[in-house]
């Protein structure tokens, strides 16, 4: 009896041990696989961010580099003086200029993202509904603009939108307007620029989800009495949510910090945080303030995304 129990116990111990070690092996494998991207992120994202964050806590100074040190050594008394200035962050809230810039950026990015989705979804749907060469051709057409310099394409839009540009000339020729419309240097031009530039980032993730969408689900919905419009809202749209989410993030995040498009197409009063950052850095040479603006922008972007991710995980469970 006791012997039997003993072997039983041994046997169980054995399996526990082997299981444990195999688990460890797998984990090591996993770590080594993700170590390269982790290292990359640490080197080129996290460390630079820490540097920016450190600068944001300094004071602007006429020096090289133009800010004060955080640590000062007092060798005689062996004291480290740590100097942290929170004033930059407080100033962000005191001066409504920064808050307005943040809000305006988020608004412009949100509206642009919405229109990118509105235009991108039908395009992605159309491409996904095609097969073979046609599909490849259409996808290539979506990616093709990337082969031209981004700046060049924005300049091309200036040619389209300026007072004596192609759009105005055309509208005047067909007699729709008498006077050229001011399009360049307006928020409208900024929207057009952002929507145009970021459209592929919306279409590609949407295409991947729509392409995987099981056609028999659509047919089942129709078979059960839902017409094409209902089927779209009840089946196609909810099923493509991952693509919509990915596309929106891919457009929204860079659009918030966009600098070039508002600078070239926008008016002088088009307020965007990217521009504020630029001005703080190059015009005012106030590195700590610029760093505080950048840090804050990251927080504004990262926090909602983390919420989104958590929401998605809960939804999946």
């Amino acid at each position: 009896m006791s012997i039997a129990t003993g072997t039983f116990w041994l046997g169980r111990y054995d399996t526990v041990k082997t299981r444990f070690s195999s688990l460890k092996k797998i984990r090591w494998g996993r770590y080594s696989v993700i170590s390269i991207p982790s290292l990359w992120l640490a080197l080129f994202f996290f460390i630079p961010f820490l540097v920016v964050f450190k600068i944001s806590l300094a004071e602007s100074a006429i020096a090289v580099p133009p800010y004060t040190d955080m640590f000062a050594w007092n060798v005689e008394d062996a004291i480290i003086d740590v100097k942290i200035k929170l004033g930059n962050y407080l100033y962000l809230f005191e001066d409504s200029f920064y808050l307005d810039a943040y809000l305006s950026s988020v608004k412009i990015a949100a509206v642009s993202t919405f229109f990118t989705l509105l235009i991108g979804f039908p395009m992605a749907y159309f491409i996904a509904s095609k097969t073979g060469t046609m599909r490849t051709l259409l996808l290539t057409l979506v990616i093709l603009p990337f082969w031209t310099s981004f700046l060049l394409r924005v300049y091309a839009w200036m040619g389209f939108l300026k007072k004596n540009g192609i759009v105005n000339e055309f509208l005047q020729t067909i007699g729709l307007i008498d006077q050229p419309i001011q399009m360049l240097q307006t928020d409208f031009a900024v929207y057009i620029g952002i929507v145009y530039t970021y459209l592929p980032f919306m279409i590609l993730p949407l295409y991947t989800t729509l392409e995987k969408l099981d056609g028999s689900l659509i047919e089942a919905s129709k078979d059960l009495g839902a017409g094409p419009i209902r089927t779209f809202f009840l089946i196609t749209l909810p099923m493509s949510m991952p693509g919509i989410l990915a596309g929106c993030l891919l457009v929204f995040i860079p659009a918030v910090g966009e600098f070039v498009i508002p600078a070239l197409l926008g008016a002088s009063d088009t307020l965007m945080i990217g521009r504020v950052l630029w001005d703080e850095f190059f015009q005012n040479r106030d590195w700590p303030m610029a760093s505080a603006v950048a840090t804050m922008m990251l927080l504004i972007l990262v926090v909602p995304i983390m919420f989104l991710r958590n929401g998605k995980k809960e939804g999946a469970e």
Partner: peptide
Amino acid sequence: IEPWNRPINMMFQSYALFPH
């Protein structure tokens, strides 16, 4: 007569259950 107006229902080979 469109599929959604027919007095017919179908059971699909893949079952086509709505995953969401």
